[in-house]
Design a protein around this nucleic acid. Structure first.
Lengths: 118, 118
DNA sequence: GATTGACTTAGAGTTTACTCGAAGTCGTAA
DNA sequence: TTACGACTTCGAGTAAACTCTAAGTCAATC
C-alpha cells in the first residue's frame, strides 16, 4: 500500500511517516517501480508498536534504538526484551505516580466543593 | 526566601522560575528593598501544585489559565473546580490507557521470553 | 575602594517532535 | 498532449518548555 493509505490506517501523516523513516524508526520500506513507498502489512504492525511505545512516553530516540535491535534479528532478542522490561518498570512507577496525582486532584476538588457549598 | 533557596526547595531552576513568572504562572512575587525576589511560604504550596498539574500533563498554557482564576479570588471557585474536574477525568482515562499499554508490553515481553527460552 | 556572589533584565539559543513548502517526477484520464 | 493527483526529496519553519548568555546592580566582605 502506498503512503496515503498507510497514513489513513495508522493515523500518522505522510509527512510524519517520511520523518520517521528518516530518523530510522521505519526501515527498509519497499519501493515500487516509480520509486514510491509501498508499505507492507508488517509495517502496519511495527508502526502500531511504535505508537504504543510513544504513547507510553518513550522518546523517538529510544524507539530508534529498539528499531536498530529489530534490524539485527535474533541476536538482539535479549537486548530487546531487556529494553522493554526497563521501560515496563518505568511505566509501572509512572502509573503509580499518576494515581497519586489523581488522588490529590480529587482532594483539591473536594476542598473546592466544601468552599462552594453547591 | 530568595530565588536560590526557593529553587532548591522546589527543584525548579532559577531560570525556570523567572520563566514561569514571565508567562504568568507565578504572580505577585514579593520583592525586597534591592529588587530581588522574595518568595513566600504560599508560593511554595502553589509551586508544588503547578508541578503536580504539569506532571499530569497539563500544558503551561492551561496552568496559566488556572493561575488567572486563582488571582480573581472566590468568584472563580466554580470555574477552578470545573477545570480540575475536567482535568481529573482526562487523567482517569489517560491512566486507563497507560494500563492497557502496560498489559501489552507484558505480552510482548512474554513473547520474547518464549523465543529466548532462558 | 575593590572584589565577590547573588541577584536583575532582555533576548537569543536549544531540544523534541513534528509540519510545511518548493520544486520536481510519474502514471493515468480527458 | 496536457492536465491531474499522488507521490518524491531537501530544507526551512513551528510549538512547547525550557536554558543560557550578556551586561548590569547591589550588599557584604577583604
Amino acid at each position: 500500500m502506498q503512503v496515503s493509505e498507510f497514513s489513513q490506517l495508522t493515523g500518522v501523516s505522510s509527512h510524519t511517516l517520511r520523518y520517521y523513516e528518516k530518523i530510522g524508526l521505519l526501515k527498509n520500506v519497499r519501493r515500487n517501480a516509480s520509486g514510491h513507498r509501498d508499505y507492507a502489512e508488517k509495517d502496519l504492525a511495527w508502526m502500531a508498536f511504535i505508537q504504543r511505545l510513544k504513547a507510553t512516553g518513550m522518546s523517538l530516540d529510544n524507539i530508534q534504538r529498539y528499531s536498530e535491535y529489530r534490524e539485527q534479528g535474533d541476536v538482539s532478542l535479549v537486548a530487546r526484551k531487556q529494553l522493554l522490561e526497563v521501560h515496563k518498570s518505568q511505566l509501572e512507577s509512572y502509573i503509580q505516580s499518576q494515581q497519586s496525582h489523581l488522588a490529590a486532584l480529587q482532594d483539591k476538588i473536594n476542598h473546592y466543593h466544601q468552599q462552594i457549598n453547591d
